[in-house]
Write a protein that binds this DNA or RNA. Structure first.
Ligand SMILES: [Mn+2]
Ligand SMILES: [Mn+2]
Ligand SMILES: [Mn+2]
Ligand SMILES: [Mn+2]
Lengths: 234, 234
DNA sequence: TTTATGAATTAGACTCGTCTAAACTCTCAC
DNA sequence: GTGAGAGTTTAGACGAGTCTAATTCATAAA
């Protein structure tokens, strides 16, 4: 019905829409999927044809409800797969993204259900990203914010880290910056760097990276629920 | 490098070559992959170009060593996946073929290794088909023969059943004809039907089906090793 | 030896996903 | 208000994988 390529466009648009709001411009999609702008234009025409995006020429696109549902479905596949690979096949959390990025397009609904059941219907993936429900209702806005948006002195707990770059993930894991970990914002340097500390010391993070780490202010209610798996590994 | 379509052609040629010997004709491949003859011709030109088949115009093709290795690799993926789905995700042995037929092209070597390890390096899949070694050396000729080739009165143990047709598999499972089960060849009727019996009664099988069930004469050495999983389910 | 028949190949076309080069549109600075 | 420049779309091409229709080949029968 829908090719894996189309699914990747929808997923990409979904993410960009979450970050920057609609409409999403051609060049953003091109950058995120590593194709040229004309390629995106022609794909957007096809997706519009199928009712998966609404398009305004020279403006950009926005997912329709149907398009959003497809995107959410693929994201559910992706994150369930990541969780499954870590929990049942001994993958490191640093190396699951690529495998899931392929398999997400090729597993059946049956497979999705079975791994969800085997995992006990988890709500977050190994990187702290929320796993959409089986109903595919678009998740509500999350309460986390990028590290860079907190103020110096704030005490926060890491919720999510970016999963696309294996080396970055490995470095962060080594530095103890993993979902569930508590941090204090120590300093925001004017050279585009942020300093945080935790029990084992201080860590400097370029703003570009700090912007991809999402956290919440420490709160007794949420502290209990946070995923402390990776902390214990260190 | 190699598309999933090409992999399916190589796997198809491999099977046909096992059954009917080389060279494998265009029309056989077309039938097995459900495409037209010209489509096969053009694909064979590409595979020849890449050194995966040797081709004699108007005669047919034969896998090169390299082509055979690719085919064996895909078959290893397929059968490991089937075993994994049954053993670790509660699939029925009747419903794993389709899922494996897609995923076989999309799992990484990493994934292959991890499920093999998790399964304890099994040697046969849920349908009794041998799983190639990780070295990808082409398996040696097997000692099993189609049911139809035995003589009336022979006592045999089922080794392998065809996995492509879900309904057929369900029927056979219900009838107790599963790998590891012992049968006696009762009658070979001249209308193209064969009758076998086991502890729970008699069963008639059209020759077309009997030809796809492979067995060995009962032998104390092999009896112990046979897969009795499905027998105990009934 | 010739020819009829069935199978294989060639020819030409189509869709999908991609590209480069050229043309167009929108916006913002002057 | 106009024009420059950035960003978008159009035009035209290509490879992969598939098809139908036409042609060529191999071979078995006469
Ligand atoms: Mn993907
Ligand atoms: Mn993730
Ligand atoms: Mn396949
Ligand atoms: Mn099988």
């Amino acid at each position: 019905m829908l090719s894996d390529v189309m699914e990747d466009y929808l997923k990409g648009i979904y993410d960009l829409q979450r970050e920057g709001g609609a409409p999403v411009e051609t060049s953003l999609i091109a950058g995120s999927l590593d194709v040229t702008a004309p390629t995106v234009t022609s794909m957007m025409e096809k997706l519009e044809e199928r009712g998966l995006v609404a398009r305004e020429k020279y403006e950009g696109v926005e997912l329709t409800d149907e398009g959003e549902t497809v995107a959410v479905e693929i994201i559910r596949h992706h994150r369930l797969l990541e969780a499954f690979l870590v929990d049942h096949l001994d993958y490191e959390w640093t190396e699951v993204h690529e495998e899931a990025d392929v398999l997400e397009h090729h597993i059946s609904e049956e497979f999705e259900e079975r791994i969800a059941e085997r995992l006990g219907d988890p709500t977050v993936d190994p990187h702290g990203d929320p796993i959409p429900e089986a109903t595919l209702e678009p998740p509500t806005a999350d309460e986390t914010r990028p590290l860079g948006e907190f103020a110096v002195g704030d005490c926060v707990v890491v919720a999510r880290v970016r999963d696309r770059d294996e080396d970055e993930l490995e470095y962060l894991a080594e530095a103890g910056i993993v979902p569930g970990r508590r941090l204090v914002i120590e300093e925001k340097a004017p050279i585009g760097m942020l300093t945080v500390s935790h029990g084992d010391g201080q860590q400097n993070l370029p703003d570009e990276v700090a912007g991809t780490i999402r956290a919440q202010t420490v709160d007794v209610d949420t502290e209990e629920q946070s995923d402390a798996r990776h902390v214990t590994e260190l």
